[in-house]
Every structure is written in structure tokens, then in C-alpha cells.
Design a protein around this nucleic acid. Structure first.
Lengths: 159, 159
DNA sequence: CTTGAACCTCTAGTCGCTACAGGTATTACG
DNA sequence: CGTAATACCTGTAGCGACTAGAGGTTCAAG
């Protein structure tokens, strides 16, 4: 498994940024953005200054997109790429990174679950009527009406 | 329950932005930001141009923070405030807004759960060794190694 | 009266893209 | 071969929801 961007073998097919984007499931703007921030190496250009890519770039970009889909931050992806680029390295660090990410996902999950439960509770208790007696408004107005003691952290759960 | 910002009754105590922030659980910068974007009305100023608040502002800001904690967007909070400001209105719209938000929370929850499971799976299958044979790297490189068929949407789950 | 904390405005930075505007290159068709 | 549609280029600005800092003013305590 090689996700490095290597120089093309003879006769290898070159593709443009549009096709690269299509094949790896993102947009050309995003590809250029990844190049700008250094996730992708600067692509070689043809005579008309357009970027040309090989299948190595498709693999690297696919890796990036997939890691992003898993919710890894761009910085984490950068680290993962560096690790993947050194196949002889022990994979402890990869493991650590993944576990930390898992822990964060679980924390978000817990917060989000609490928020969901509280939302459900307050919706169920709304008897309908007018806003002056709306349970939803009441709960939002007064944290003591929540089962939870701490802040919900719904906003933080979304980061 | 009145969360409107009304003019202070005679002899009502005024507080500064710092105390307001402390009492409602956010930072002074955030308070000014909320004023700037119109979630909070422009606060009256003392002679030295500093904002003075009453308990009505504490209530309003607490409502805002609480709704934000529930993950409601600032725009949704704006709508909720408008509704809460009209206590005689029927609360159908509040209900609708809350239910829509609940549905979104549940969707995010589902995506995040899927991501969590896949992360767990790939961490459990990592035998340790070097990066060249690391299962985590392999899964990130090749979506077909995931149980899931579609994209994970981990990044989207975080919005 | 002095010191230090709290406050003021304005601007820019965060993250991860996305969307222009205004131009050039390539490609397909007639 | 000419033209038109498409793809590409760079650079900049915008999103959401704050947060941080610079550089200055005002307040409260001693």
C-alpha cells in the first residue's frame, strides 16, 4: 500500500484536477486547498500551467478524504500521512492517534446523547398551548428544569 | 417567565458586563458579540460609556447560552427569542423548531455512532507491528475495508 | 492620588472548506 | 481552421460562532 506521491513510471497516465477530484470524492477547489496547506505536494504542471496527477495522487487524496470522513482533523490527517509515508516505522503512534480520536468521538457521543434525551424530554412535556406556558421555552429559560446538572455542551459536541 | 429586556424598575441594581458574563456563564467578548449580531439589545451605557445591565439581561443571556448548549444555532436562538418575546402566541412553532433540532441531533448521533463503531473495529484489528502492515492505515487507505458502504460523514456529524 | 482591574473599540484569527471574479487553456464540433 | 463550451488558473472573501489581541479609557480600592 503506497500512498506516497512518487514520480510517474514511464507511460503512466496523467489526469487533470477535475478527474482527480471525481475519483477521490471531493471538489477541485478542495484539492487546490489541500495543496496550499501542504497535505498534497505541489502537483507538476503541463505546458499550460495546469496540474497533472497520477494514480499516486488519487490514492493519497482518497486517504485524506477517508480520514476526514472519520472526523480526523486536518492536522491529525497530516500526522497520519507522515506516518503512512514511513512504512517501516512501528505503528504505535498511529494507534495512539486513532485511540485518542476514538475517545473524543465517544465523549462527543455522550454529550450529544444527553442533549438528545433532554430535547426529547422537553418536547414530550410540551402540552401545546401558548408560548407563555410552553415547557420548551421554560426549560431553555431555566437550567434547573433539566435533569442534567452540568452544561449540556451541545455546541461543543459538534466540534 | 419573562426574558425580555425591559427598562429597569426604579432602584434596580445595575451590573457590568463582567458580572453579567459570570452570572450567565459566558465571556464578556461573547456578550459584546451577541449585542453586535443583535441577539442582545444594545445595552444602556453609564457616563464612562460602559455597558450596564439589569437582571432582565441576565435572564435573556442565560436563555441564549442554554439554547446554544442544546446545540441550537444562533439563528435558531434568534427565532426562539422572538417567540419567547410573544408569550401569547401559540407554541406550535417552538415545537416545530425543537423537533427539527431533535431530528438533526439524532441524525448526527447516528453518523457519529457509525464512525465510533468503525474506529473501534479498526483499532481492535490492529495487530501492532509496523506501519506498512498497520490495519488502521489500511482501512483509511481503502474504504472497501469498512463495514459501511456510504461515506462516514464524521466531519459532517460534527457540525 | 495612584494603581490595577475592568472596560472600551476595532481588527484579525480560528477551522475546513466554498464561492466567487476575472482571466487562460484545452477540447469538441462543424 | 475557427469558434464555443468546458476545464482550468490565481487570488480573495465568505461561512459560523466565537476568541484573542492591541492600544486606549474608566472605575474602584487603598
Amino acid at each position: 500500500m503506497n500512498i506516497q506521491t512518487s514520480e510517474p513510471a514511464n507511460e503512466e497516465r496523467y489526469i487533470g484536477i477535475g478527474e482527480l477530484a471525481r475519483e477521490s470524492g471531493c471538489k477541485p477547489e478542495t484539492v487546490r486547498y489541500y495543496e496550499r496547506i501542504g497535505l498534497l505536494p505541489s502537483a507538476p504542471r503541463n505546458e499550460g500551467n495546469q496540474r497533472r496527477y497520477t494514480t499516486a495522487a488519487v490514492r493519497r487524496l482518497t486517504f485524506i478524504r477517508h480520514a476526514r470522513d472519520f472526523g480526523f482533523s486536518v492536522e491529525a490527517v497530516r500526522e497520519l500521512l507522515q506516518m503512512a509515508d514511513q512504512p517501516t516505522m512501528p505503528c504505535d503512534e498511529v494507534d495512539t492517534l486513532a485511540k485518542r480520536h476514538l475517545a473524543e468521538a465517544e465523549a462527543r457521543l455522550a454529550r450529544l446523547t444527553a442533549v438528545r434525551d433532554e430535547l426529547q424530554r422537553m418536547i414530550n412535556q410540551c402540552a401545546g398551548g401558548n408560548v407563555g406556558h410552553c415547557h420548551i421555552i421554560d426549560v431553555l429559560s431555566d437550567h434547573r428544569l433539566c435533569k442534567q446538572t452540568g452544561p449540556h455542551g451541545g455546541a461543543e459536541a459538534l466540534r
